[in-house]
């Protein structure tokens, strides 16, 4: 690391934080430095010769830089690097480890919508979308990125406290032959077998089955 008298200590913990392939470079300020430190960012595609500067992250004082656009091709892998400047002093370039958007991203839980009849509940699951540059850009579901994507669905009978888990590949699930006038709570998780990726479970969506129609 740099000597104190003519260069600045290095930025620390330089890494990508990625959710649904929104890939943001994060770092911590050099130790012992207060405000006033500025940063520059560059990135490179693994296997390609050159580093490319990110103009929007030149001389910034924040400690993150959104590189989603530059790293959106998930068939490639990337490095990024940060350099700190303060009062004419500067640090070394500090690099990330190799970043693979396909395996190193985190996945949000699926969206869950639930409806019910007197003896069944219907569950519709929607996988999150891959990050996109602008709202106008065509959306791409993570299902297209990970063809092996499955859902683990948890259904809790609030009366009996019995919980079932379903592991399904398609995005709809009908749980039939339930008890009328009973509350059920549903939550779901995305489960990708390879590469090994799991989202957290979504929050619970509760719904009650209606009155038994045959009794009416």
């Amino acid at each position: 690391s740099g000597e104190l008298y003519c260069s600045l200590l290095n930025p620390r913990n330089v890494r990508f934080e990625s959710i649904n392939m929104k890939n943001v470079l994060h770092w911590s300020a050099p130790e012992g430095t207060g405000n006033g430190v500025l940063y520059r960012v560059k990135y490179s595609v693994y296997g390609v010769g050159k580093w490319i500067r990110k103009p929007e992250c030149r001389n910034i004082n924040r400690t993150w830089c959104d590189l989603s656009s530059e790293t959106s091709d998930y068939e490639e892998q990337y490095y990024a690097s940060v350099k700190a400047f303060l009062n004419g002093m500067f640090s070394d370039w500090v690099e990330t480890t190799r970043f693979n958007p396909l395996t190193d991203t985190k996945i949000d839980p699926p969206m869950v919508s639930v409806s019910s009849t007197d003896k069944s509940i219907s569950i519709i699951l929607t996988a999150p979308e891959k990050w996109k540059r602008s709202p106008e850009e065509e959306s791409k579901s993570l299902l297209q990125v990970y063809p092996g994507l499955q859902y683990n669905v948890s259904v809790l009978n609030k009366k009996t406290k019995k919980r079932w888990f379903f592991s399904i590949s398609n995005h709809t699930l009908v749980v039939p032959w339930l008890e009328p006038e009973t509350a059920y709570c549903v939550s779901a998780q995305i489960h990708i077998t390879t590469p090994i990726l799991d989202s957290g479970f979504s929050k619970e969506y509760c719904i009650a089955t209606s009155k038994d129609k045959t009794e009416a």
């Binding site: 683990n152 948890s154 079932w164 888990f165 379903f166 592991s167 399904i168 039939p176």
Partner: peptide
């Protein structure tokens, strides 16, 4: 059919 893998320890299979 509907192989269901309990996150903890049990697998449920549901059949009509």
């Amino acid at each position: 059919f509907w192989v269901i893998r309990e996150v903890s320890s049990v697998v449920h299979l549901f059949f009509f």
